[in-house]
Nucleic acid binder design. Sequence first.
DNA 1: CGCCGTCGTGACAACGTTTGCAAAAATGAT
DNA 2: ATCATTTTTGCAAACGTTGTCACGACGGCG
Lengths: 342, 342
Amino acid sequence: MAKASIRDVAKVAGVSISTVSRAFTRPDLVSQKTRDKVLSAADKLDFNISRSATALKTGQTYRVALLMNEEITSWFNMEVFAGLNDVLHDAGYDISLFQHIDTAENRKEFFTALPVRRNVDAVFVNSFGIDSYEVTQLKRVHVPIIGINIPSTSNFDASVSIDDEEGMFMATQHLINLGHHHIVYTCSQAAEGIESSIDNRGRGFIRACKAAEHNHDLQWQVLSVPRGREFADSALTALLALDEFPDAICCQMDMMAIPLVLKLERYGHTTPRDYSIIGFDDSPYADTINLTTMRQDPRAMGRNAAQKALKLIAGETPGNAHETIQPQLVLRGSDAVFNHAR
Amino acid sequence: MAKASIRDVAKVAGVSISTVSRAFTRPDLVSQKTRDKVLSAADKLDFNISRSATALKTGQTYRVALLMNEEITSWFNMEVFAGLNDVLHDAGYDISLFQHIDTAENRKEFFTALPVRRNVDAVFVNSFGIDSYEVTQLKRVHVPIIGINIPSTSNFDASVSIDDEEGMFMATQHLINLGHHHIVYTCSQAAEGIESSIDNRGRGFIRACKAAEHNHDLQWQVLSVPRGREFADSALTALLALDEFPDAICCQMDMMAIPLVLKLERYGHTTPRDYSIIGFDDSPYADTINLTTMRQDPRAMGRNAAQKALKLIAGETPGNAHETIQPQLVLRGSDAVFNHAR
DNA sequence: CGCCGTCGTGACAACGTTTGCAAAAATGAT
DNA sequence: ATCATTTTTGCAAACGTTGTCACGACGGCG
């Protein structure tokens, strides 16, 4: 009862096991009448097709792996996951998450043992840098590899990324156009050795500032604080320690910008009255606190990546395998034309 | 090359397939020398044990299902997921998420077809009410069912829940003890037909108020707004429309409290100067905005549930199958003794 | 020197599906 | 009716493992 197989169903329905199999996987190939018999027998016996057996026979596991480095519950990661799930769930796929790629040890172990090998049909690498040895190892799983926000995607079968540098360039330019003279970029330090695509944002900031400093009377600087739980507080302290408080702040991400806005308020710095601030992500609460920010849509990226994966699994080549998406400036209330009167 | 089987490895290593199998699953049973031969052959051939084949043979799928109703990326759900993953990943299990249980249609389909049947070793039901028909159906998967924050858990094999009613009772009592006279409870309306454990919080609020209204000069009311994206804004509007602004607000959840604190500020209501407010969850940013709240630890709940599941899968009975956890009052800065002078 | 226990290994039969091939049944045209 | 199609069905051989059983080698013991 608890474990009926296709054989039992066949017996009860009075047909062969092939017919039962077809009734489930290729219903168009069996007559209406037989299908009904099979289905009701299956219902009676609490039967469903076993995915494991199917996987064994067909070679398709109907699983994919999502590798991630950062905190598993981060807003961005979960949206990507949801996007993948939107597409893959309907296609009959399950997604296994691998978060245990955080420490150097765990990484090493993961890329040596490759536990996903022969157990997934595709691998998604989400938002962390990976060195050439790791890429080489990963290739040994012999399934499509899709990168999401990965610095160097050239080695993967497909990828979708945000244009981090261009996005921050635009954000910075917006601040400059508003007439600000003293802009600081706050970011948390890059992890040792591991390059992340988020680090490109700083480059965009610097490029925009350098491009503008000839024409404008512009003072700019980068404030890099240690990564970890307290990075927003560290940034706050550093900001307040500055000789002169800036008239604009450009944040590496909303998770930096949001606490900053809230806490600076307590020190008498109100936006947009006293300074402009811009975030990056358009994450939850950005809207609530009226934060101007660069929007990226990680869920859409997930869906996009999933579609590419499905194509690759089917043996086709997706149209534009490597896609770069431009983030969009979302104007809200945390920026304003710089008041020269001050 | 891309798909070596245990047979190929056996050939290269010059041993039988049984030995290869044992080298992986019961390494203690094969000699050091043979194991090395096998492992190096496996490495050469890019081989890993196929989970599907193992699952087929052993009857264990090494997968579990996590059913959820609410928005997949909600903080709470993701923390629960992370907690499950903490324990289950190490035990060799993968977690498949089922979010497509949102509309009545999808629910019906899910509980009729039971796609998880024969494909998982356990089912977790996370934070949504489920009617008796659905429970009956779910039982037909014939694997352990573990509830997480489910109103009536009696039908499950195990469960872990927050004591929502008692938690909100405590929160309300705290507000009353602070001397507040006019307390409103803001919540989003319960979904039609589907009872959620979160709805118990309202009962705790009412109970605390009723218990206190004889001794204190207490005025209280429940403000229930339509569910959906805009619920915090609706609550804000309703609050401002009140004849008299309350001196204390009790929120069903942090996601209600946080926007309220931020937006009320703009209307000149500052906490704790003008009113006290208390949340429920201790979600991200609660700390940033200094919100006093009832903390629950969903990640720990996930781990707890996972351990129970592992026991059940192994055929044992977990110690206390049904556990209720008390949330804790986290005192921060959004509450104060009511200033009678006002 | 024979007996027994232990250890390491191999043979082989499952586990529950899918699928190519061929046979049987139903349908249509004459 | 007959024959030519087309639709529906059954047979049987995989797919890649695990686990039971049995066999040989080895060492200790009487």
